[in-house]
Amino acid sequence: MFEWKWDFVWEIMPRLIEATGNTLLAAGAGYAIAVVLGLALALGQRTPYAVVTFVVREFVEFIRSTPLILQIFFVFYVGPQFGIRLSPWMSGMIAIGLHYACYLSEVYRGGIESVAKGQWEAATALNMTTAQKYRRIIIPQAIPPALAGMGNYLVGIFKDTPMLSVIGVAELIHTANAIGSENYRFLEPYTMVGIIFLAISLPAAGLIRLFEGRVRRKLGL
């Protein structure tokens, strides 16, 4: 039987905390990309041009149906083949941001479609441009129903950051791997990483629900 050593836990904590910072940074930056790009992908499926809709739709389907870890490798390794060198961080953010942009585009799409038809008509009756309709009337109403899904994917992107370890981003799992192989002890690092994930994702899920309620009230919905 292998024994749990608290001394070792305290010894490795500073490194794990630093790695937690990197994990949160990766999740935050990836999510920021996904939030913006996702909206573009959602609106890209709503243009009057059937070809554009088709291409964007198929692209989203493709990204959603294939493993993120493979996409991370693809972005990281294919660049150099054509003379473009991307850092692990850069490749990781592109891959994870794009992957979650596709998920978020579906969430936005659902939100936009949930806005009643009469809202579009009222906006037309006020003689708004298409851009004004989206910005002032439709998007503000599409966001609250999308918040739950957006929140889930924020937690989701956080839990998917360990995949970035495969290209050398020093997030939690990468650090735990390093600690484990330096010390030949895997019990504490992997367990602590698990606990850190739980300690962040469980309260985060609760906070997101709280936030969702507040936004709804603020918008008078």
Binding site: Y190, F197, S201
Partner: peptide, 11 residues
């Protein structure tokens, strides 16, 4: 659901 599949796999 609160931890990552990679973590679970390694564990």
């Amino acid at each position: 659901r609160g931890t990552s599949l990679v973590v679970q796999l390694y564990w």
